[in-house]
Amino acid sequence: MIANSFEYSAPGSLKEALALLAEGAKPLAGGMSLIPMMKLRLANPEHLVDIGRLPELNYIREEGGAIHIGAGVTHFEVESSPLLLGKCPLLAETAAYIGDIQVRNRGTLGGSVAHADPSADYPAALHALDAKIVLTSSEGTRTLSTEEFFLDTFTTALDPGEIVSEVIVPVDAGLTGTSYQKFLQPASGFAIVGAAARVRQEGGKFTMVRVGVTGLSGNGYRARNVEDALVGQDVTDANIKAAAALVADGQDASSDLHATAEYRAHLAGAYTARALRAALSRSA
């Protein structure tokens, strides 16, 4: 459980960090995924650039009708931010489900998003929130939708030398209800499945529905088929159930020591329905 030797830099500015990354160094933020892999010598980076301490990446602020969150913000900060709790409670609720308090105190939003673990919690919420991911390198900055960003298992649109620098989530109107529901893997605390729902209703009908799912397959995804099945429909539990039952369609459900593909697919439906119901109960 001892890492290979490596070089460590802790630059004082983002610019400096990006320059080092452009030379091929790997970024280190909270280290909650990377460091254990290094200790097992499964990951052996030669040069780590610590971006977890950069003040430039550490903020949560409201700007132009959206909330901008620096990549270096920890899960605990997301979970406990008054701004997020008030204006984007889904992200705070999701963060509270991550790992344990030690992990949440060190792990960062940007680190988790860039890692793109297929069982991580954030992707579900970010898909449901129509979030934007801001990518930065020494060459400049670009902004992607979640579907453009999360490509596959541990695979994102990040280019070498590029980091996730910011996540942008909407300020939801007071009428929107959201919820994240998670079935925990008992050993790791990762999601066997997690479902995030964001809904609006008017006159007894669904007017907006977003569903994001994690854990079921190799990549978190936005369940557009569930959304389409609900929008414009009456707000009834039968409709929720029927729509949630579609959530695993077209997904190649994963199977491991902790859940078979069949069980995961079933749970995805059950937890999507739970998330939708809870979100609904929180929408005006």
């Binding site: 010598r41 298992t153 491991d256």
Partner: peptide, 20 residues
């Protein structure tokens, strides 16, 4: 070896992705 001990939850998704 080491990957088998630590990577249980990733093996299925990873192998699928590589095949893809």
């Amino acid at each position: 070896g080491s990957i088998a001990t630590v990577g249980q939850r990733m093996i299925d998704t990873t192998s699928k992705m590589m095949v893809k």
